[in-house]
Amino acid sequence: MYNGGKIIIGLIIFAFIMTLPIWYNLASDQDPSLKDYVIATKGVKGKDRCVLPKEEMLATHMDVLDQWRDLVVRDGERIHTTPDGRRFNRSLSYINTEVETILNTSYSITAEGDTNSTIQVKRVKAKHLKDNITAYSCIECHSNKEQFCDRCHTYMSVDPYCWDCHIIPEPQLMEVAVK
């Protein structure tokens, strides 16, 4: 091997540059522990368990979401039922009472003379399932994106584009809807 020394030095520099993100993350003191991780920001009665156990969700939520989006968009299958019968809305959207009120000014959702927007929203949720059982979307439980999504994603340096289209939840706007 001629020019051996140069090649080896070059390789070392190359390896260092390629692994730079690892060194960078090791050097910056981010806390990867998920002990005080906020799972459900809202106190939703009886809905304190997700579709899968926490550990499984941590590892596979991206696959779940990937499957779900095809199921919803391409097959129109919006409701997820867990083996123990709990139902969820496969959705990253949420009903926001304020905006719903705005929408009601241009057209009416209900004809029964309900002027209270909260009631109207509940009607929509009920209608959604056609059998009066409310199914919550992902972020109607996990309403705090910063705590729930970003903490881990920032640490892992992943930047999913969910929120380029889906609207970032604002917990205070969801209060009424999820009560």
Binding site: R78, Y94, N96, V99, L103, K127, K130, C165, E170
Partner: peptide, 26 residues
């Protein structure tokens, strides 16, 4: 409307006959 996504730049969009509302019986 937080009950429906926006779009991102670089994709095509159009009317979908409100399929999201039809699924709710609207």
């Amino acid at each position: 409307n937080t009950d429906f996504p926006t779009r991102m730049k670089g994709v095509v969009e159009k009317c979908t006959f409100c399929n999201e509302r039809l699924s709710r019986g609207l």
